[in-house]
């Protein structure tokens, strides 16, 4: 019984982890069909914000929950103004430009902080014991934060004026523009918000995975696959993609080992995209957010 609970929580954490690293990318992709290949580096920047500010004496919770999204959100807005807005509608060009941005960010961070960084912040919150099993309390906290974050994005999209304008722009940018919505501004805000969510995720993961200039590379592939498998709906897509891929990865990791877990995840994504080229939400939950 204890084992079932422990495995269940680990599965849930695996799913939450995928959702957390993918949500920011999904917001940007869902809204403007821009695949941000510097997404991994936005996560990395969130992590560095936490490490640098805690080393400077800032409380770890303030650093993770406030500073990381704030700093990366601002960086996101700057990037959108300087780079992305010139490339809307040119998908391949944005891929190249954001890839270049990712290399630039890795280079800048490496030259400032060096190749390896002492992120000696330990995950707070201690250990939760379930019989003979133990799970880090911080991982449970991350599951809760991910749920809250998804809820917050849903509330924003569903009930605020910004959400209404954003959904309108998403469905038909030209019509929204004709009705007087400044799509330009909506894009900027969404990109900033997507970046902020990514920064938050990177900040939250910093204590448990550590930060390196190149850590983004370990996230980008999985985030990318999750978002593409999920399809264009921001929330339903991220959630469905994370549950499916994270669940399969977790189950196969338990049954055989991490290598097969990764293989199973990739194989599922390939088969899924063969059958549903527009992702899960291209076929199911089409009207969802």
């Amino acid at each position: 019984m204890d084992l079932v609970v422990a495995i269940g929580l680990q599965l849930l954490y695996g799913i939450a982890n995928l959702a957390l690293i993918s949500l920011g990318l999904a917001i940007i992709f869902g809204m403007m069909r821009v695949i941000n290949l510097a997404h991994g580096e936005f996560l990395m920047l969130g992590g560095y914000t936490v490490v640098v500010s805690t080393n400077a004496g800032v409380n770890i919770w303030v650093a993770m929950l406030i500073l990381a999204p704030l700093v990366v959100g601002i960086i996101g807005v700057v990037v959108e103004r300087l780079l992305i807005r010139w490339l809307y509608g040119r998908m391949v060009d944005t891929l190249l430009a954001t890839w270049g941005l990712s290399l630039l960010l890795i280079g800048v961070i490496t030259s400032i902080f060096g190749a390896s960084t002492a992120s000696t912040i330990s995950p707070p919150l201690g250990v939760v014991r379930i019989g003979q099993y133990a799970i880090s309390g911080y991982e449970l906290f991350l599951i809760a934060v991910t749920a809250l974050l998804l809820g917050a994005v849903w509330l924003t999209l569903r009930f605020t004026q910004l959400g209404l304008l954003a959904r309108g722009t998403m469905q038909n940018a030209q019509m929204a523009s004709a009705l007087g919505v400044s799509t330009n501004r909506i894009y900027m805000i969404t990109f900033g918000l997507g970046a902020a969510v990514t920064g938050l995720a990177g900040g939250l993961l910093a204590p448990i995975t550590g930060v390196l200039p190149t850590i983004g590379a370990t996230y980008i592939a999985k985030a990318f696959i999750t978002v593409i498998s999920g399809g264009a709906s921001i929330l339903a897509g991220t959630a469905a993609g994370s549950v499916l891929l994270g669940g399969i990865n977790g189950i196969f990791t338990f049954l055989s080992g991490p290598t097969f877990g990764e293989v199973a995840l990739l194989l599922t994504a390939i088969v899924l995209l063969r059958l549903m080229p527009r992702g899960i939400t291209g076929r199911f939950f089409r009207k969802s957010l």
Binding site: A6, I7, L205
Partner: peptide
């Protein structure tokens, strides 16, 4: 573990 694995939870269990 493949070199890009960052979640070791299942193995720790």
């Amino acid at each position: 573990f493949p070199l890009d694995v960052t979640n070791f939870g299942p193995t720790i269990t």
